[in-house]
Amino acid sequence: MMGHHFGVPFHRELQRRIILEALSFISSATESGAVLKIPITWAQARNQAKALGLTEEQNR
């Protein structure tokens, strides 16, 4: 989602995964201009964050 390219607030694992996917893709790239679409939706990310109960307080 616009303004949330690395996932949802406080979802460290998702933020980390998105970076790692990019780094892995860069490392193995064979063609300029290729785009990797990660199979996760904004709705799934939000639901994961809700299920994990991610809040500011837990991350301070």
């Binding site: 303004g3 790692l20 500011e56």
Partner: peptide
């Protein structure tokens, strides 16, 4: 020009400076 409601709570959603340091 973009929604900042997530970044205002956790900047890492748009500028993952803490995640990169962890890596």
């Amino acid at each position: 020009k973009y929604p900042t409601f997530g970044a205002e709570r956790d900047l890492n959603v748009i500028f993952p400076i803490e995640r990169l340091r962890e890596l």
